[in-house]
Design a protein around this nucleic acid. Structure first.
Lengths: 201, 201, 201, 201
DNA sequence: GACTAAACGAGACGGTACGTCATGTCTTGGG
DNA sequence: CCCAAGACATGACGTACCGTCTCGTTTAGTC
């Protein structure tokens, strides 16, 4: 998002990639270690060895910075699997997601998800960069599944998705940990019964 | 929580119920209108016509105050239904909960749930006063259902509960609205198939 | 001053002399140990084991309380000497005063004298109870001396008094110590030359 | 004192002289109008149109600020005269000082002198910036006078100085006004008799 | 090689809110 | 009617960050 504005300048000193990296790294570290609320721009600037100006020049807000830092650390690490069946694809994707959320990046994402409730801009940024792509993929995969007869009759994609992903995210709201792989498998089994034509655990 | 300390003092000027009410009301209003992050003690004190001291005398932190204010406005409004079947009980309870969350009190709770991610004390307070009682009831009801053969074989209560409640809460994380009653019914139907022995929608 | 109001009550619980003493003692201790600015009513009440109400009932202000406490501890300790000559009387009185000011009571008085600059009421109270009686005596003694020809010609009593007492008090303004007896004697000798007919040191 | 630190910084936004002046002026006004005790940093900040941070950045305490404000308003206004004789020099200097103390700056100084009794840091600051330079000059001038035979025999400079300046400052302790020029002349005449070889009024 | 122009670090700026402290007043129950 | 206890509204304290601003200093590219 921030990079978009770098499009066409021709003259003047070019943006320092060193600073950019240092800022994103420092932001990510603070996010993981102290959470979103305690993410102080001044602390980031000091840790990154830059001036606050440089941060504000390239990121409009703490929210954008945090989201950018998260993706800087996470980028392209989450694929969208293709196992052959919708049930297998979702299971694989959700288990992979659970694993990621349980790690360092999970703490960062959780911190931001919390902040998002009180920071509309963060909510927007997160929705756009994280949630939406996943939702897109989910919808398409689920629609394809429906078309190919993999779903039980009368199952709406939206409903199915909320059942598959809700139990994974919800614990983050209460300060809880992301469920372990075994727990994820357990609820996926239960959910699959209602969703997939071949729902047998 | 704050009231606990009022137990048995005999001497000195008694606590002003007027101030207590004004503070809780002002807190709730700010919570609903501006969210938890923007809930400034100074603003609450001014709105309530009290001093900050009086707030800090009775509530140890913003977190406790917010939670107390929420319950002051919500108190005893949520019963735990008894329809005759576990499936009916959970359906009724969850629909009632969804209705509450969609209203003003829902905005307050959502604001706090967001704050909880970045404020361990708020997470603790919320867990203790909101989540835990509900979890208690849920566990007991689910265990009873299991004992009475209302669950499908091999269904763990914990798993079932996460499947029933997760899709309800999760949208709050992304700044989304609580699902409408129809959407709640839809996912409950799907979830019930995997959980309850008589899961037919 | 405060006691004046105790004149004629007849009914109700009588004033507690225990509290009165405890309050005055605690006030004096605080005055000596921490100074006038740091003389907190709340600390005095706690140290005296009384309520703040009791203090405010009997003393209108911190200033009155402090002055009262000072005289409670000092009372009637300063006589007005009569050596036979004006020069001898003043010398004796000033040396006695210097000795007092160098002790514990001096620290209390010094603390109040400082506070007086910023607390008109304290200035008034101090002036009335401390300064004025001394000035009275000084004027009278000096006038008598003049009448009896003990002063050099054209010496105004007011001028003479300021010369005798000024060098004693002035150091208090700058946080300094009251001059030692030898220093006092030295300046008195010098001053006497200009003031008294028999001014020879 | 605050300025000392401004010595050699090269980087960053330079200190705002506008703010500095506004703060010192506002401080001086409050000092004159309300005294040292009532000199609230917040009020100064508001009156000066600055943030409190800016004050605390440049002055370590209320005491330093007050002293600085006083000198900002007074600076270099007090010379050390040279009339030819020690007696003349001191007379001139003391009369000039009395005139200053009777004005607005005198009220400010008096307020601070009072505060100094209860604020060791203020006492230190005042001593260092006001009292000490004057004492220095006094000592040197008096020592020279002694060397040049202008003093009566056996007159110690320290004693002489306390006799000359004490009567000027002492009234400030009791909330009184600085003596008028005529009163100052009167006591100087008396004091001179004991001090100076040519002490004849 | 000088010139132009933007990014850079540093850090001061006016603010807002923090949680604490003491003020002087009030409101109880008990002596 | 006094007393202790202590809650009350008020207002200043000194601190931490906010997001903006103003410096002098790089660091390119173009003339």
């Amino acid at each position: 998002m921030a990079d978009d504005m770098a499009k066409s300048r021709v003259t003047g000193r070019p943006r320092s990639e060193t600073s950019r990296g240092a800022i994103l790294d420092a932001t990510f570290r603070h996010l993981v270690e102290r959470g979103y609320d305690a993410l102080a721009m001044e602390a980031v600037a000091k840790a990154a060895g830059t001036g606050k100006t440089t941060i504000y020049r390239w990121w409009r807000s703490r929210a954008e910075l945090a989201v950018d830092a998260f993706f800087h650390a996470t980028e392209a690490e989450l694929g969208f699997p293709a196992t052959g069946s919708a049930k297998g694809d979702f299971r694989a994707q959700i288990l992979e997601l659970a694993a990621l959320l349980r790690g360092e990046r999970g703490r960062a994402l959780a911190a931001m998800l919390g902040g998002a409730r009180n920071d509309p801009e963060l909510a927007r940024a997160l929705g756009e960069k994280w949630l939406e792509p996943r939702r897109q993929w989910g919808f398409q995969r689920m629609n394809r599944a429906k078309a190919e007869g993999e779903l039980r009759p009368h199952v709406e994609p939206e409903t199915a998705l909320s059942l598959l992903y809700g139990p994974l995210y919800a614990p983050l709201l209460f300060g809880g940990e992301v469920p372990l792989a075994s727990a994820v498998e357990a609820y996926l089994n239960l959910a699959s019964i209602g969703i997939f034509a071949d729902g047998s655990a």
